[in-house]
Design a protein around this nucleic acid. Structure first.
Lengths: 199, 199, 199, 199
DNA sequence: TATGAATGAGTTTTCATTCAT
DNA sequence: AATGAATGAAAACTCATTCAT
């Protein structure tokens, strides 16, 4: 008769939400927001359509939450990877490796997020996420300049260029255009970016 | 009994098709494929919705044709611009300028085409278009290597990187993140790519 | 090629709207707002479901418009009928006859409107309509008092009572509980109300 | 082997059913049948949604039972109140007071019951209930005629009119249109009905 | 040829009812 | 007996496509 431990309930709910988000990422990633049917998400999550609405308010709610989720995960992974490095090259490698790994494991999401969304509503979210990444890079570059590894210069263009190169490389890997191993891919990208920062 | 010159007729038809395609590019570019309504396209083209179906079989048909159209236009512009140059830098500048100009005038299309489409059906088209661009770059790079301007190396990575950088720069211009004049943008990009090709 | 006379178009649109409203009144009246399916309305109007949405924004829009329509019609009929009378009895007869006739011809609507709607959202509309009727009665009663036909008194209770009696009588007629001819019904009601106004 | 007294069990069951019915009356009255959610009823009854189905077969079953319940209660109260009176006025006052009190305490139910229901299934129930009330009134009126208090006449119209007036008065009180105290309201109604019965 | 009103299949969302715990 | 998460049928509404004019 008594309510069971509310924490227990919350854990279960969070678990279900996570399951649904995982399923949604797969389907949204494969088909995009518009072409995704709630039926598809439900089927992927192996639950009934109506159940989705016990955990999320709407299709858009699922999408938005999935994006925020992914974004947070990526930032965490980036901090972890870049924190381990000391030289510019090490930090840069960490930054890039985080993105190659993360998107490699969340391929669907990549298109969902990094190709600037078709729908105007998604632009802001995408830009915010990119902005956060650029800021991390700027910090890395500035520190390297302060420690004399590279010369001072306006780093913003190089930061954006770095993101552009990573995005392109990932896309081509996911589409099978290129077939480098992740580590090789990372090294190629690091080399490119370092060249970019040279005088 | 027939009076109308069939050629004359064809010209008219082509003209109408072109008008519709132009309208469609605007709307598809602004809203994306799914969010675009046939009503929107008709209104933009200043014709009745039903008329669209006299010139195209379906919404998807309009989309596909628009993409092919744009692709052809871009190739033509690229050939023209790169043909005028003699040094690596001149040809590269032509290549990049063609893309900055073209997409600047067809902003809508940019998202429509260069962000790898969400639906699998669009991938092929996008990749074909990119492949054509990469091939042109490879030719430019190889000629420069032959003429001793740069050292021989596997140029494919640099070619793809060039496209990545152009795409990113254009996106940011269209979204207002960066505000460089076209010429300045081109110069920045050329410099980046040349660095990329250095030892 | 030229647009046809815009008036012509408006006439057609109004006609369609009227057709849909008529159909909607029948179905809403029979089943009530919630239990009515848009399919039902469409079928009753002999058009496709989607067509409803070319003329009305939503189910509620159809309902609201139908109510306003009916309300306006009733007011007009009331003014016509009461305007013809000179004595209290004649005017009262006009007022009541208008309601017996009108609802007799729009039975469905009667339940839709006069049984105070179940849903809170409909109360305001219903009350506004009743208020308008009460005001007409008050004017009639006051004039009769001024001309000495009846004694001055607070007329509002009698006005509401009049509406209550008419509603009940109509309901019973429509449900087959009573079977008086309309004229007889009107006379009975008039007699009741006149008694009510006596000292 | 059985231990539990079946009567005891039945008492418990009846108690639960009564609790649920009370909760249901509140919610149905406030929102109407269609707009009421089983969740609402469960919450109001402070039990789980599933539990409702241990005591009732369906939403409609709850509704129907609630109506019958209310109807029986009203009849009982009416008998009690009218039984105390000796003159026409006293009995009539009892009859009306019973209805003003009862509905005042079960406001929700009022709309649920007395506004002739939208769905045909509800009509019969409502009519049966009204018929019972009319019969009581007829008895009161006939007795008064026999004792010479009023003259013989067809009393059915006056009986129905009485119900109409009570219903209207109650509705307006519940909606806040009028604000008379219950006793005042009763007196006004009695006066109206007595006038109605005069020559 | 051009129109735009009409269509109805397909989509998101709701909620009475069921059922595993 | 009680719970409340899960279900899926059903409803409102959209929009690509058709077709009578």
């Amino acid at each position: 008769m008594r309510k069971t431990n509310p924490t227990r309930k919350k854990v279960l709910t969070d678990f279900r939400r996570a399951e649904i988000l995982a399923a949604a990422m797969v389907v949204f990633g494969k088909k995009g927001f518009d072409a995704t049917r709630m039926d598809d998400v439900a089927q992927q999550a192996r639950i009934a359509k109506g159940t989705l609405y016990l955990y999320f308010r709407s299709k858009r709610d699922i999408y938005t939450t999935a994006v925020q989720h992914a974004s947070a995960q990526l930032q965490a992974l980036t901090n972890e990877r870049t924190g381990q490095g000391h030289t510019l090259e090490e930090k840069l490698k960490g930054f890039i490796a985080a993105r190659v790994e993360f998107w490699g494991e969340n391929r669907g999401l990549h298109r969902m997020l990094l190709s600037i969304g078709r729908e105007a509503t998604h632009h802001k979210q995408t830009l915010l996420m990119q902005r956060a990444s650029v800021d991390i890079l700027l910090r890395i570059f500035t520190q390297a300049a302060e420690s004399g590894e590279i010369t001072q210069q306006p780093f913003e263009p190089a930061a954006w260029a770095t993101l552009d190169l990573i995005r392109g490389a990932n896309e081509r890997r996911f589409l099978g255009v290129t077939k480098n191993a992740p580590e090789a891919e990372v090294n190629i990208l690091v080399a490119f970016v370092l060249k970019t920062l040279q005088q």
